[in-house]
């Protein structure tokens, strides 16, 4: 079983986001990039399958700031092979370009299964998983929160609204968009990551062209104009508590 996990770094939403001078993109100068949280779940799910069945796990990502940490962390969790893609990614790249760029590389790795995060918060032209599945001509199921494998197929549990799950049988090779791994992404100690850095190599592959055809052109990016805003309760903890008691009474629950 050969599992490929393409992952991407996205802006950390805990930080304040600012729009750049062009007015059409985020200002990347001060952006802190972190792994897309759903991709983190995809890595976890791949490692779980490896632990159960002895699968070989390759994690690949684009060469932007923070990628080495991301890849070494994946290795410390149990990934077998790390690949960094070199290209002109710093100015931002849409999902169509990214999916096209990694299609040949993923194909060359002859996967049985490709696991991606189901989505990322900055997807404006679709999701990497189903785009990649389209280019690879593989079947795709997204919003997956766990699966089992038998006889050349996976039985994936797809989430629908209201807690309903659909069990779907998918012929391999396939791409799955992971909503949540069967257990929370594991924590690895920094010391273990440092150790891995000494013994693990990140392979590099060049991406010649980035073709963004298929995504929209952004004419303007802005922060949502807030038409309505909460009445803010100010003061020290005591005052806030007193006011909240009044609010509970207003709501008719106290």
């Amino acid at each position: 079983m050969n599992i490929i996990v393409p992952v991407k770094l996205v802006p950390d939403l805990v930080e304040e986001l600012t729009i750049d001078a062009s007015g059409t993109a985020l200002d990347t100068a001060w952006l802190r990039m972190i792994i897309n949280e759903f991709d983190d779940h995809a890595i976890e799910q791949a490692i779980l399958i490896k632990e159960r069945t002895g699968a070989h796990v390759t994690v690949l990502s684009t060469n932007v700031e923070g990628v080495d940490d991301l890849l070494f962390t994946a290795a410390a969790k149990g990934a077998d092979r790390l690949i960094k893609l070199n290209g002109d990614f710093e100015g931002g790249v849409n999902n169509h370009a990214l999916a096209r760029a990694i299609t040949d590389i993923v194909k060359g790795l002859q996967p049985d299964l490709v696991l991606t995060g189901v989505q990322a918060h900055n997807d404006l032209d679709g999701q990497i998983g189903p785009l990649l599945a389209g280019y690879l001509e593989m079947p795709y199921v997204g919003c997956v929160s766990g699966f089992t494998m038998n006889n050349g197929q996976v039985i994936a549990r797809k989430e629908y609204p209201g807690g309903l799950l659909a069990e779907m049988a998918v012929r391999l090779p396939a791409v799955l968009g992971i909503q949540a791994a069967e257990q929370p992404p594991r924590y690895v100690a920094i010391s273990k990551i440092r150790q891995i850095m000494k013994s693990t190599i990140i392979e590099e592959q060049a991406i010649a062209t980035l073709d963004s055809e298929g995504g929209p052109t952004i004419g303007r990016m802005f922060k949502p104009e807030v038409s309505e805003y909460a009445i803010m309760i100010e003061g020290d903890i005591n005052e806030i508590c007193t006011k909240l008691i009044e609010v509970f009474k207003e709501a008719g629950v106290l």
Partner: peptide, 20 residues
């Protein structure tokens, strides 16, 4: 869950632009 599975795949297969 349903629409995301379909739209991106169609975009890739048919070469149609997608805005999500």
């Amino acid at each position: 869950s349903i629409g995301m599975d379909v739209a991106s795949g169609l975009s890739a297969r048919m070469g149609l632009p997608l805005v999500s």
